[in-house]
Design a binder for these strands. Structure first.
Lengths: 358, 358
DNA sequence: CGCTCATGCAGAAACGTGCCTTCGCAAGGC
DNA sequence: GCCTTGCGAAGGCACGTTTCTGCATGAGCG
């Protein structure tokens, strides 16, 4: 009745394929999904008819029936109201890219969602699991997802006792300690830090590692803070750091743009890099290969982070998860360039924990 | 029967809310969605019970019933096999960020999908519409989507007669012509081009605009091509360009990293910027504000592109689309810095079509 | 008083799959 | 000749929601 009228108005459904092929709905479903016991002739016939009608199974109906949507959420952190830290630092872009690639390779697609609790949009999409970036201690979104039985993998070790399914992170303390040792090996007498006012785990761990290192080697800490989400504040903070009476002769910048900011500040203050000032910053950008001089960078390996997070998440989705959260630590890489070497370079790439290199 | 057993095994459904509130399913649905004619007392009561049970409507069921998923696809171009151009150039990251933000503001979420026809993953997600980046002439994915009645908005004016719902683009010819005029105004005698071997619309339009300009001013074209997806090839091509016997005294680089590549190449060749070589590149990166010297950049305004594309798409989804494709041209912005000025700077920002600036 | 009409709510039909159950039928063992 | 076995395929329910239709009830009105 109403079915015969909807000829070209609606997309072809599994019923139409069954009718056109002269078989039942079950047979069509089994033939297309490779299930059941059917002779190859029937399978081919059904597939051919389905192709001819341009049949596409309804993702919504399949999701409703099977409970699996093939969608993975990826939270993007928001500073303030509107803007998303997506390209603020190349880290996020690289990580998202790797995560997208890894998800697609296993038949999943990524959905970009805001870390803030935009309730309407979160509950409007059926998620098989979620990757969250640096969740806060008692993140309401994460808690709600876990309550619903949806696996959550965190990029960044959760601070409190947030019961995530798994987490991936670098060993930030070890990375910073190794990097500071490298600067000291290069002849640094007083190492300064350019850090952020934000309270995220990365900033916190890196800063405390710096303070511990200063304590260990008996140096007074010399650091400047600025709101990392403000692209202009970094240049100002770099200037402040180099204008101090206790000016450092080596600086580590926690954020991606700090390298160019510090280079520009050094030029303004008449400081030569690396002769008067040693420089390292944490960055994933390739531009530091061609700056004048090339800048030593600490890479957090966002591609490996993103890939590992998605792999762990899909493993948890497809297999029943373990009781305890799975932990995976990704090693960092210190890419040594001219800016942190007072003597002719010995090696180009070194591991972060090479402490015995006296 | 089977319903009473699934107490905590399954999430609370609308039935459970109805039973707990002592009303019918219809009343629950109407109360939560603000439809129907219900007294406020009933509405509040139902909302309260739903909250108490932690009820979350099933996105899959809603999508199946209403035909709207609240999901928008965003294609990412792939070079070769695996890698996605996501962070290759800051353009994509900025554009995706703005698109995500605009979509979320209107209650939609973005799904990242590969431009190549990964059939399984495309048909596994229910899309209300899609934004495609620079589709090829007869893109099979776009054709299939349009056949299913799904709106498609293109970033980049479609080359052939691809019947997209709408498209957003810059006026690349005008931008390049204005930029070359600016270089000529600054005293350039022979302007070179660093371009790509790829066949995408942006590269093609920009290159032909350059050739037309050369033809108009009576200059022999001087250009070098390289595969834009290879991050190392740009530095080599920049070197080639400056090593030519007919070395240009001004260069425009089509891609984001070309600025640093050309600066490094100029240093190697002993050329001072801007005294011996004027420099402009197309980039969205903030680093060119702090390079030595700061580099003039052409911005394609990816934030406005991404926002406009999503706005047009959602308009097409929610209102019945017009017959003819909607076209929107976003103006570019030439951000003039030291690298393209031989004389003391007169202005910092100028419109691309300022030709009467003798 | 009987008729209309607005109000407040319930019943039930879809939406398009996946899968569990059943069922016919032909062949083979007793 | 009857029961078992296995193959091939059909019937029908369930997933959880939206929404169309429709039934009571009480008030307004001629």
């Amino acid at each position: 009745m109403s079915r015969s009228t909807g000829r070209r108005l609606t997309r072809a459904g599994i019923r139409d394929v069954a009718a056109a092929a002269g078989v039942s709905i079950t047979t069509v479903s089994d033939a297309l999904n490779g299930k059941g016991r059917l002779p190859d002739a029937t399978r081919r016939h059904v597939r051919e008819v389905a192709d001819r009608l341009g049949y596409r199974p309804s993702a919504a109906a399949r999701t409703l029936r099977t409970g699996k949507s093939g969608l993975i959420g990826l939270t993007v952190t928001t500073y303030g109201d509107e803007p998303f830290t997506f390209t603020e630092f190349a880290y996020f872009a690289e990580m998202a890219r790797a995560a997208t690639s890894a998800a697609l390779a296993r038949g999943y697609a990524l959905v970009i969602l805001p870390a803030t609790s935009r309730h309407d949009v979160w509950s409007n999409v059926a998620l098989d699991g979620t990757v969250v970036i640096d969740p806060s201690d008692h993140d309401p979104v994460v808690t709600e997802l876990l309550r619903q039985g949806i696996p959550v993998v965190s990029d960044g070790r959760p601070a409190g006792t947030l019961p995530v399914t798994a987490w991936v992170d670098n060993d930030h303390e070890a990375a910073v300690l190794g990097l500071l040792d490298h600067l000291a090996d290069s002849g640094a007498r007083r190492v300064g830090l350019l850090t952020g006012t934000t309270t995220d785990t990365y900033t916190r761990l890196s800063t405390t590692a710096y303070l511990h290192w200063c304590d260990r080697v008996g140096q007074d800490p010399v650091y400047e803070e600025y709101p990392a989400h403000d692209p202009c504040a970094g240049a100002v903070a770099a200037d402040r750091l180099l204008a101090r009476p206790d000016r450092p002769d080596a600086v580590y910048g926690l954020f991606d743009p700090n390298g160019t900011d510090l280079l520009a500040a050094a030029r303004r203050h008449g400081l030569r890099v690396p002769d008067d000032l040693l420089l390292v910053c944490c960055s994933e950008s390739a531009i530091y290969r061609t700056t004048e001089p090339p800048v030593t960078t600490l890479s957090l390996k966002p591609r490996r982070i993103g890939t590992a997070a998605v792999q762990l998440l899909i493993d948890a989705i497809e297999g029943p998860g373990a009781e305890h959260p799975v932990e995976r630590v990704i090693p960092t890489e210190l890419i040594v360039r001219t800016s942190s070497q007072r003597r002719p370079p010995r090696t180009t790439v070194s591991a972060p924990r090479s402490r015995a290199g006296g």
